[in-house]
Design a protein around this nucleic acid. Structure first.
Length: 190
DNA sequence: TGCCTGATGTTCT
DNA sequence: GAACATCAGGCAC
């Protein structure tokens, strides 16, 4: 594990989540590189009734309790994948859900995987997984290496970040743990 | 434009 | 057997 990335991610999820805004994800598929910028995140940890890790580690969630900097991919609603970046110290069960990304390079490959127009290609957690071909095969993947690599960028100014309650969940709805880049068109409107 | 619902698989109780 | 961190399409307004 890259020390810089490890240091960056070994903080609580609600600290890492806003700092991941603006960071780059590089996805390699069949030798082609797709680059996207993270524009919306949500923090989850074990104290959080909405988190998969709330009830302690299980076969499915053990990745969340592992080392920071790995990818936790889960399948939901019978047809969708969502991806999280594991954060915090080992055993804390914390992760940051990637809710939306903005394409930078390789948009044509994303369209091959998800043939829709405009921001629809990646303005939702399950959408971006489809557009980047992220599925269970990448569960537990180390984000310092291709085919999926996290590239840290300088933190954005606080004034560019909006902090709100989370969406699409039924528990702990009043925690202000959702973060997005103010005004970015790829942020999900839900 | 906005609400409602069906499609689906994995996990946990 | 029910819940689920969703999405897209259909329908009413």
């Amino acid at each position: 594990m890259n020390t810089l990335l490890s240091d960056f991610l070994q903080k609580p999820a609600f600290v890492v989540a806003p700092q991941l805004l603006g960071c780059i994800l590089e996805r390699e598929i069949n030798g082609q590189i797709i680059r996207v910028r993270i524009v919306e995140t949500e923090a989850y940890d074990q104290s959080d009734a909405a988190s998969h890790s709330y009830k302690g580690p299980t076969l499915r969630t053990e990745i969340m309790f592992g080392e920071a900097g790995h990818l936790y991919v889960y399948f939901t609603y019978g047809m969708h994948y969502c991806c999280n970046i594991v954060t915090g110290k080992k055993g804390t069960g914390a992760a940051v859900l990637i809710r939306a990304v903005e394409p930078l390079d390789g948009l044509e490959y994303m369209h091959d995987l998800r043939p829709v127009s405009g921001v629809q290609v990646s303005n939702g957690p399950a959408k971006l997984c489809q557009a980047l071909a992220i599925d269970k095969a990448l569960n537990g993947h180390d984000l310092t290496e291709l085919p999926l690599k996290l590239v840290i960028q300088k933190p954005l100014a606080a004034r560019l970040i909006t902090q709100t309650t989370r969406v699409g969940i039924s528990q702990a709805q009043d925690s202000l743990w959702r973060f997005y880049i103010t005004g970015n068109e790829y942020v999900s409107k839900l």
